[in-house]
Design a protein around this nucleic acid. Structure first.
Length: 160
DNA sequence: CCACACTATTTAA
DNA sequence: TTAAATAGTGTGG
């Protein structure tokens, strides 16, 4: 399997998307490098993916999503990510809430692990998951850097 | 076996 | 009252 990679240019930098023949496999935050060489072969889902990414970055609801390829991932993680995609724009949940929805009442930590392993940030909105503090919610962590988590939440109109 | 993007609970100060 | 230890969870190193 070769896997097609392609840059996605946005006002926030150049994201890098990787596709398999089944769908979007991964999405990486801008690493500072420029847009790079245009691949000879382009995935048919590139435009849809780019559109969705730009929409979310702008705090708008994406019109359409590309198919997503989660092959090779554990059951639990797929459940978590599926649940994440149900969270509407601008809404947030806590790790504990998510765990409970999956029937893992005490699995908040495991949920955190799944979020950290999320190969497709932004589209699978791991940034909308916050930690439960003694009083209200805390930010928690983010694999792409907390800056991104904050920026994404602010674009969606979420206050802390 | 240990370490985590967690948290409710318990035990000490 | 507030702070620190602990237990419970799924995965990966």
């Amino acid at each position: 399997m070769s896997g097609l990679s392609a840059p996605i240019e946005t006002p926030d930098g150049v994201f890098l998307a990787t596709f398999s023949e089944h769908g979007l496999r991964s999405l990486r935050f801008p690493d500072g490098s420029s847009s790079g060489p245009t691949p000879a072969e382009v995935s048919p889902w590139l435009e849809v993916t780019a559109g969705a990414v730009r929409a979310i970055l702008a705090g708008k609801r994406p019109g359409a999503f590309p198919p997503i390829d989660l092959e090779g991932e554990s059951e639990f993680r797929r459940l978590v990510w599926a649940e994440l995609q149900k969270i509407p724009l601008g809404a947030t949940v806590t790790y504990a809430e998510l765990a409970e929805r999956l029937g893992r009442k005490n699995g908040a930590r495991a949920v955190g692990g799944a979020c950290g392993a999320n190969p497709i940030p932004v589209l699978i909105p791991c940034h909308r998951v916050l930690a439960q503090g003694p009083r209200g919610q805390r930010l928690g962590g983010f694999s792409g850097g907390l800056d991104w988590k904050i920026r994404l939440l602010q674009r969606e109109g979420v206050l802390l």
